[in-house]
Amino acid sequence: MGTESNIKLLDENGLRLDGRNEMELRPIKIETNVLERADGSAFIEWGGNKIIVSVYGPREAYPKHTQDIDKAVIKARYNMAAFSVDERKRPGPDRRSVEISKVISEALSSAVMVEQFPRTQVDVFIEVIQADAGTRIAGLTAASVALAAAGIPMRDMVVGCTAGKIEGKIVLDLSKEEDNFGQADLPMAVLSRSGEVVLVQMDGDLSVEEFNQAADMILDATKRIAQIQRDALVARYSVETQGGE
């Protein structure tokens, strides 16, 4: 956003740099239970993003002052590996990742039935191994799969997608270049069945009409992504009846 440049993000046919049209998503692949010792885990490849999510809990909340007497607390930690971006990222939490951790925790809290296990915490570790725009939404989408795989009660699955504006046109699922040199970026996450919005952020400027158009595109795309989530969850259980010990 904001970076003035002469890069053409759309060619004469209206196709984007990676050959997608404005409504097309990057390829998404999700795998569940990739970690042995986590209660639930997921690995997502979304375009160039590679993110691993592990879920632990519910377990007794520590430090004790973070406990909530009425409900569980979801502690999501979004972390980027030093090698996940072009130029080495200084390891450790920074302003950006603390913010993303917070919004992801809140988005997940509205899906998980936190009132069922008071005074506990559910840890969600989102480790970005390779970043390529839209990591918060990819991390959140995978986190929801990992929570379901961990057997944690949820009202609904959380599923997200981004949209943005490049060269004055609203497009779905921005890539790295489009994110860096485009005009606006709108990550949004919803509950997959009810369509309730649990996360929305915006970088750059959109008019009301553009915003509505982008939101509609995202809502439509989340249906496709939700199906990928469900397929990933089922995949583990359709093959396991084979073989004995």
Partner: peptide, 23 residues
């Protein structure tokens, strides 16, 4: 609605959703 990712188990009187795993 289901709370879990799991299977439906129908008894004579009740219907349950049993998660695949969990605490």
């Amino acid at each position: 609605c289901s709370q879990y990712f799991g299977t439906i188990q129908k008894g004579d009187d009740y219907i349950d959703v049993v998660p695949f795993t969990g605490h």
